[in-house]
């Protein structure tokens, strides 16, 4: 079971990396922020899987903090008057 979780987490890391290409491609800053949003959700999923892999429930708290951060990113982006294309 742990093996499968490791494979799933590795796959998520790869998708995460592919998604980061959108930062390079753009074209607008809104597209780039989407990539950051994707990395936030993926990180939470990876942390959940890691909490099983290394049997460390404390990682659930780290995931919780990440979720709270993810909400702040978009608000900070929208609030920034210099943001956008």
């Amino acid at each position: 079971m742990t093996g499968l979780a490791v494979l799933a987490a590795l796959a998520l890391v790869i998708f995460f990396g592919l998604g980061l290409l959108r930062i390079h491609l753009g074209p607008t800053d809104a597209d780039r922020i989407l990539s950051i949003q994707l990395s936030g959700t993926t990180t939470v999923a990876i942390l959940l899987l890691l909490s099983v892999i290394v049997d460390m429930p404390a990682l659930l708290y780290v995931a919780l903090i990440f979720v709270l951060f993810a909400a702040v990113i978009a608000i900070a982006f929208v609030r920034n008057p210099k943001g956008g294309a």
Binding site: T28, A30, I33, L34, Q37, T41, V44, L48, L60, A63, L64, V67, L68, A70, A71, I73, A74, I75, F77, V78, G83, G84
Partner: peptide, 22 residues
């Protein structure tokens, strides 16, 4: 479950904000 619900709300609101901005 709390993490999941927070993620749902955060992501949906973020999506709305970015869409409105764009």
């Amino acid at each position: 479950t709390v993490i999941w619900l927070l993620a749902l709300a955060a992501s949906s609101i973020a999506c709305h904000l970015v869409a409105r901005d764009a």
